[in-house]
Design a protein around this nucleic acid. Structure first.
Lengths: 346, 346
DNA sequence: CTGAAAGCGCTTACAG
DNA sequence: CTGAAAGCGCTTACAG
């Protein structure tokens, strides 16, 4: 299909400028001309050439997303929100996925290549060192998704707030001896969740026994995994003085914990309570109280931020922070105190 | 950064042709010239412009993937395999995601735009009607992933074989009265899995009572969901003559079924057996016997197929079919008959 | 090994 | 409303 604008122009008996105008929706074309050009183009099956167009226009309708571990539920959902929002526009999405921080730098470097895209979304990466340098000298706008840097637009979810909500739920429900199933210490989201949780407990004068804060022993996926939750809950249950409610920094860990609780014969939601984080599809299914992040909104909003930057509309640096919501389900049933959630196990 | 090849050329005291040759790894440049051009380019921070390059070369180093429901585990994993393979090349990946068949056509149409990419991967779509027409007149090579059409290169997983393996496992283990938790009837993969299952049972002279084949009542995600598996298993258990082993067409359904089995007090893996499909991460965790598809390999192989097509190396239509593997775990423990699988619940 | 020049397929002031 | 022409930033025969 080597059809060019020249073929259409000659066949339609107009200049290439006119054909171009028709395809760019210019209003400086008479309806009659437009219709005829369109019908010729349609008949011949003409399509403008993407690269030629971006070169001539000096801009491209492509956005890049640099993502660690694309197979992760959170990223996949954010990406979905992003694409839904993008579908309404002319933009296409270039995806660069990495499996480590080093790879993030490599992929970001690729994404930043001149003429490749009009803007870049960087997911969940601590912006320092090499990444910071790359973003610093980037010639296209960058927006951080699920990340933060004082000088770069960002959009994220308030992890401290999530921890706070969990603690508040516990406090209101009369929890006296809380425990925590923590992901890897190095994980920034998990640390923030824990920090918010601790601070709010303190406010209520509820002590958090350090021996009841179990760090995940399985490193997979930064410690957000079932195995570690299972092992951690086993450890908590065999403590001299076990907790009466547990906050897990992810649903994956919580699902593992549920397994351990079932084996122990405990009634979850009455004997002991459990709160997760993420609201994976399975959370609803197993009746797990959890913190939900508006993943789709995050994706959509990220694209909007980037659009503003690309069009030069934006002024100062913008940091958008979404709040998580506590979804109350059976795993904290007895804590309900009137705050009946939407949650039924099935 | 409006740096062009001219800036580098003049600063380096050579022609733009030479600069171009350096950046294209041509060997028709003296080492000395090469080094000096490179150092100038490096100093100034020059990068070739992607669109200009593809326009002049008359080809692009971009591949498109058209995907339904990107948040699905299977697609995310295949995508990962694809990207791992692509990372070794100069290719970038454009992702178009759809939420329905109609949207698949729209997105495929976008992906097929001239100059946008050098080849397109179409995921899990029945190629007929509008989609077939689009692929038919496409000017770039198309490879079907998890799909089939006689005239188009494809790569897929043998779903009939998966059903056969499940049936064989049941037959060898002495199952007398099998049941099936079926996804939506319209789902091609589920139908194929069921067909293979039935055929192999027949071969062994084991009857499959139609009343023990329960179609999922929850339409979400084509019937591959926990809720339907739960409800379906409840129905099977309350049958006048319940099954002694159940084949679920997905792990999601099987996880729901496990829940129902637990509530019923049945010992899974001895009183009754259960086999899923997909080998989701949670399958290993809950000790579910299942059929695993080599998702990463599928992605990598899809890219290779496309590369061959793009380079014109390929001859006839190529259909690659991967076989699933039965991963034996606790949920069919008593069927083991020596075939001890790798599976331990934790 | 190197350069001058044509060409890739569009867009967009500038004139009319 | 329409056209002629320059330009977007490269690549690649063609000559030397």
């Amino acid at each position: 299909m080597g059809l060019t604008i020249y073929d259409i122009a000659s066949k339609a008996g107009v200049s290439i400028a006119t054909v171009s105008r028709v395809f760019n929706g210019s209003d400086r074309v008479s309806p009659a001309t437009r219709d005829m050009v369109l019908s010729v183009a349609d008949e011949l099956g003409y399509q403008p050439h993407a690269s030629a167009r971006s070169l001539a226009r000096r801009r491209t309708d492509v956005v890049s997303a640099v993502i660690p571990m694309i197979s992760n539920y959170f990223f996949a959902e954010v990406l979905r929100g992003l694409q839904d929002r993008m579908a309404e526009t002319e933009f296409d999405l270039l995806v660069f996925s990495a499996r480590s921080l080093d790879e993030m730098a490599i992929q970001l470097d690729r994404a930043l290549h001149r003429g490749r895209s009009a803007g870049v979304l960087v997911f969940s990466a601590p912006i320092a060192g090499e990444l910071e340098a790359l973003v610093g000298k980037a010639s296209q706008p960058v927006v951080l998704v699920d990340g933060y840097h004082p000088a770069i637009d960002s959009i994220s979810s308030d992890n401290r707030k999530g921890g706070t909500l969990a603690a508040e739920h516990f406090a209101q429900g009369g929890v006296r001896r809380p425990g925590v199933l923590m992901a890897n210490r190095e994980s920034v989201p998990a640390s923030d969740r824990l920090a918010g949780f601790e601070a709010r407990l303190r406010l209520h004068g509820i002590p958090l026994d350090p021996s009841l804060v179990i760090e995940n022993s399985h490193p997979l996926n930064d410690g957000y995994n079932e195995q570690g939750g299972y092992a951690g809950m086993k450890a908590l249950l065999s403590a001299p003085n076990p907790p009466d409610a547990v906050f897990a920094t992810s649903d994956a860990q919580a699902v593992g914990a549920l397994e351990a609780l079932k084996e122990s014969g405990r009634m979850v939601g009455s004997d002991i309570h459990l709160v997760g984080y993420d609201d994976l599809p399975i959370a609803r299914y197993v009746g797990l109280t959890t913190l939900r992040q508006p993943m789709n909104d995050i994706g959509g909003r990220a694209f909007e931020l980037l659009m503003n930057r690309m069009s030069g509309t934006a002024n100062g640096t913008v940091h958008t922070v979404f709040s998580p919501t506590l979804i109350q389900r059976q795993s904290t049933r007895a804590l309900a105190e009137g705050t009946v959630g939407e949650g039924i196990a099935l």
